[in-house]
Design a protein around this nucleic acid. Structure first.
Lengths: 146, 146
DNA sequence: GGCAGGATAGTGTATATACACATGTGCATA
DNA sequence: TATGCACATGTGTATATACACTATCCTGCC
């Protein structure tokens, strides 16, 4: 509506909210020495071990090289096991023993962050937001892959 | 399925979508040599000139120091005029002549990106998404400012 | 066996993001 | 005047993000 109302930048709005939400999660996870990106990485490695870097990146909707850089501090901390891998070729990524422990340690913190967001924004709205975000991503993925 | 269906991480979902959307805008703006962050900066400086760095950062929902770093390439390109400023004190930020020109040059590219997103996701959903994102941010801001 | 081509993996560089820390500046009050 | 607090500004460091480019490796074909 308000055809004069100057359309607003969807990207800017999304980025602004994402910044705030990321800060909340990062602060909640700080006691475990993790960021939400790293926590997500550990959680995905736990749920689907054995993927190659490329496959995992695709799943996370992340550039492959971004995943590599993001993985670095996690691997440096010893939380991953670089499968055997066919030498250089697609090393099957998985959690190490200490990675699993770290994930278990951090999970309550993550749950607290989730709860805090739900409480602040409202469960209904969070659910609606998640659904819309899902649909939007699916639409973008269906679109040209240029 | 799965009785508790494992709640999904709102932060991860948001970040994943934001990455994709940002890529789309950045690619659209590339011919002008701008990122969407820089374009947003120029647009806000155009619409509300004279703010201090802190005030602008608050408005953008961005950490003050992040704004400083983000501003650097924009200022280096000569697109800003650092007001007179009371010496060190809150320099009033504004667009330079070439900054205004750059913004005018980039605007059609931004409009194309907006249109592409609307077309891919659907106008209705984009509107709903913007509304939810707005409400969520307002809720988070109303919340504790710790 | 050797080579061409496609897929996979890694690096260089630049921006985006924020926390911790340091610096500076001006006013109010003792 | 001194001084100390409130607020504004700048830097160091670390992660997050992606594009362009490079390197490596496997496989199919000759």
């Amino acid at each position: 509506m308000s055809r004069s109302g100057k359309p607003r930048c969807t990207c800017f709005l999304l980025r602004r909210l994402t910044r705030k939400v990321t800060q909340a999660y990062d602060q909640a996870l700080a006691p475990a020495g993790l960021t939400i990106t790293q926590y997500s990485l550990l959680a995905h490695l736990h749920r689907m071990p054995g993927l190659s870097a490329s496959a995992l990146a695709a799943h996370l909707g992340m550039d492959r090289t971004t995943l590599l850089r993001t993985l670095k501090p996690v691997a440096d901390a010893g939380w991953t096991r670089s499968g055997d891998g066919a030498r250089g070729r697609s090393a099957n990524l998985a959690l190490s023993r200490s990675g699993t422990a770290k994930l278990r340690q951090a999970r309550p913190l993550w749950e607290r962050a989730q709860a805090a967001i739900e409480s602040a924004i409202g469960s209904r709205r969070v659910a609606a937001l998640q659904a819309l975000v899902d649909e939007s991503l699916a639409a973008l993925r269906g679109q040209a892959h240029r």
